[in-house]
């Protein structure tokens, strides 16, 4: 089943166009790495998929339905979870409250169980459930955000540079958490600038270049394309 279907999508911010004709199809259970240099439109693509950025041309279908005119929250209720670039947590809310926000639409008994599971998955952090999120370190915050997103059991998880600004150890932890998704039927799209991080997790790689798809295929073939793109850049 097709989870995400983009057909000739153009999108951007004001006069600036970040995507210029992207066509992409993601099937259920895929784990896709979205690669490319800064400014090629990777973040814009996932924002289009979660409804945050409107398209100016082309069609976006999520779970077989066109998302034109659909609000961000309605799309989220259909199972699209977008972990935005940066922290992705409410700093003034506690760890527990941040997790609960993700579980709002789950019936009460299941919610309690999933909350307990999520807190357990957080390990030692789980025991500090009443701590405000802004008091945690960057790595801990990202871990809570990822755990919360997974607790929602999304159909499509869009993770925008989940390891940005993290120490190697913290980045590994975040990716280990994302690794757990592979055992469920969640479809995964991860934005990354470094291929090495996603080689094990993703079987498919999409490389963007100036708003278009430059490569779409197995992860193993992406390195050559990326190197080629960097070399072609004018110095």
């Amino acid at each position: 089943m097709s989870v995400l279907e983009l057909t000739d999508v153009h999108a951007g911010y004001g006069p600036y166009k970040a995507l210029t004709g992207v066509t992409l199809s993601v099937q259920s259970g895929d784990a896709v790495a979205l690669l490319g240099s800064n400014g090629v439109g990777k973040s814009t693509l996932v924002r289009v998929a979660s409804g945050l950025v409107p398209t100016s041309q082309g069609q976006v279908c999520v779970l077989g339905r066109d998302i034109r005119g659909e609000s961000v929250h309605a799309l989220a209720r259909r199972g699209v979870v977008h972990l935005p670039e940066g922290v992705g947590l409410f700093g003034d809310l506690s760890i527990e409250e941040n997790l609960l926000l993700r579980l709002r639409r789950v019936p009460a008994p299941t919610r309690r169980r999933r909350l307990a599971e999520a807190l357990e998955a957080l390990g030692p952090l789980g025991s500090r459930r009443r701590t405000k999120a802004r008091l945690l370190s960057g790595g801990q915050q990202r871990l809570v955000a990822v755990t919360g997103a997974l607790a929602a059991q999304p159909t499509l998880l869009l993770a925008d540079e989940p390891a940005l600004g993290l120490s190697p150890a913290a980045a590994d932890e975040v990716y280990a958490a994302l690794e757990r998704v592979r055992s469920t039927d969640t479809t995964l799209i991860i934005v990354e600038t470094r291929l090495g991080r996603v080689e094990n997790l993703c079987d498919r790689a999409v490389v963007l270049s100036s708003g278009r798809v430059a490569y779409d295929g197995p992860t193993s073939g992406a390195q050559d394309v990326l190197t080629g793109l960097i070399q072609r850049q004018p110095e």
């Binding site: 490319g36 240099s37 800064n38 540079e161 940005l164 600004g165 600038t193 470094r194 960097i230 850049q233």
Partner: peptide, 11 residues
């Protein structure tokens, strides 16, 4: 402070 944070390889 983290000059490479958020930059890609070329940058």
């Amino acid at each position: 402070d983290e000059p490479s944070s958020g930059l890609d390889g070329g940058e």
